[in-house]
Design a protein around this nucleic acid. Structure first.
Lengths: 287, 287
DNA sequence: GATAATAAGAAAATTATTTACGCCTTCAAC
DNA sequence: GTTGAAGGCGTAAATAATTTTCTTATTATC
């Protein structure tokens, strides 16, 4: 229930009328997706304009887009388990099932949330970028690293920074021909936000990868990519969200390579062979 | 697929233009549900009136009703596909499906391969370890990093090395009270193998995380954990395998924390709160 | 060859959605 | 308290989407 989760998640940031609307959506989602915007407005005690704005504030293209995605989400059979936090002394078998369910869920939810338009825009921006900067802290820093590995394999001029000073230093030298990617699950990591803002000020194209919702980081990006947002159990940490972020990175990368196949694939294969050759015979496949 | 089936079913009774429309719907249902009636009419070479009538002839209330129900239906199917390599110029939607299928597959396959006995042994070894060394190169190095992040959060004396010299240097000072974890998808990365061998010679408990099969790395480990082994497309790289490795790491970590709940959870929560406190108010959740 | 039946598009009518505008509330500064 | 700025939110105008009506073209039947 990533959309409904996101709504619950942002409850505190919602305006009064939006809350009434959100409340109705959370209680009667099945009915809501069958209504027109005016019915929904009436039933939830707000106006069509408010509903429309609500949808856009959650980064949906429009009301129709919102309705379709919510419907798709609701159609998922409830057999799927809910996201679970770590609890005491579970049998190992149950832990395995729970983690697996969390991860599968995270991936399918993220896939459902993906906006192909934004994805296409991101791919195109990355392809034509003169330089690519990647920013992320903590676990998201690792995602950035992963993306970095991929990009240099196809010969992109990419850099990755976790150090806030270096982030700003690098961002300050970007131009409108460059791309900056800010990664943060919460979307509220100050350092990453600042780096992306700085990049935007220099005219670079800013791409954000955050949990779904109205996050500060996404607010500063011109291309927004989202992962599913489960309520964060602090114990569970960022396991599922990290999977989701990697998933988005993989899709971005694969899309990029696929769309410019002849240019990138030879480089990809070359990097593969070279690693093999220079790290000993024993290395038969990428580790 | 009752709606699409019904359309196929009635194929013979359809008028020429309706067939074109039906054909498009059967081929591109995912795209169709995102379109307006006029887009759909245009793409399928008919007119809005025809589409509208088509929906009613199938006893839907109207076009919107049709769209919603089809969307709900499409959301149901999990689309279990085979592992796929990157190919040229696929539509983005297909790339998304393929990657998602790869990842889901990778996780479920890995879960199926998991040996609870080995898992228990690994958890127990990690719990009582005096020191924990993590070795990995390339992408597997990132997995090791990820594990490292997790372990230090619960106060374990962990270290992670990607540099072969440092790996050996550290491994050489391990004792029988320590644990070494070697990560390599192929299981044939020389540096990682050597580091694990060195650790074993010092009497440390060696844990391997490799693809399933008879790999060199697993041969040098006393506790062997496996991920699913799909044929590696060199273009596809290590995306799915990385997901699987992280999956194993997550299960290991969660099992560890769950089994020693009272000891580890306070540390985990403390690290969470401290990161929050020392990285500014804006940081509401782990990035 | 005329007539009836029906397919199917154009356009009109209807309905739905978004946007522009402005009122009203809230909150802070004076 | 008064004033001004900011922003929420509804009304209504503009836009877009959908359905229905009207019309034409085609084919089958007598």
């Amino acid at each position: 229930m990533s959309i409904l989760n996101a709504i619950r998640d942002q409850w505190n940031d919602l305006h009064p009328k939006e809350r009434e609307l959100a409340g109705f959506l959370l209680e009667q989602p099945q009915q809501a997706v069958q209504m027109t915007i005016s019915e929904l407005a009436q039933r939830s005690g707000s106006s069509t304009a408010t509903v429309s704005r609500f949808c856009r504030s959650f980064h949906f293209q429009n009301f129709a887009d919102f309705k379709m995605r919510l419907a798709a989400e609701l159609a998922q059979q409830p057999a799927q388990m809910q996201y679970q936090d770590i609890v005491a002394g579970n049998p190992l078998q149950e832990i395995v099932s729970a983690i697996t369910a969390n991860h599968l869920r995270s991936l399918t939810d993220t896939t459902r949330l993906l906006d192909l338009q934004q994805l296409r825009a991101a791919i195109s921006a990355l392809h034509s970028a003169n330089r690519i900067d990647l920013y992320g802290a903590g676990t998201s820093g690792m995602i950035a690293q992963d993306f970095f590995h991929k990009l240099i394999r196809i010969g992109k001029a990419a850099n990755v920074y976790s150090d806030p000073h270096m982030q700003i230093t690098s961002a300050s030298s970007l131009t409108e021909r460059d791309v900056a990617v800010g990664i943060s699950y919460s979307g509220e990591t100050l350092e990453t936000i600042n780096a992306l803002r700085c990049a935007t000020e220099q005219g670079a194209t800013a791409i954000s990868i955050t949990k779904f919702g109205n996050t500060a980081l996404a607010g500063h990006a011109s291309i927004r990519l989202f992962t599913s947002s489960a309520e964060a159990g602090m114990r569970r940490g960022d396991m599922a969200s990290r999977m989701a972020q990697l998933h988005v990175v993989d899709i971005l990368f694969t899309g990029l390579v696929s769309e410019h196949f002849d240019e990138y694939v030879p480089r990809l294969e070359n990097s593969f062979h070279m690693v093999r050759r220079y790290t000993g015979k024993e290395e038969r496949e990428p580790s």
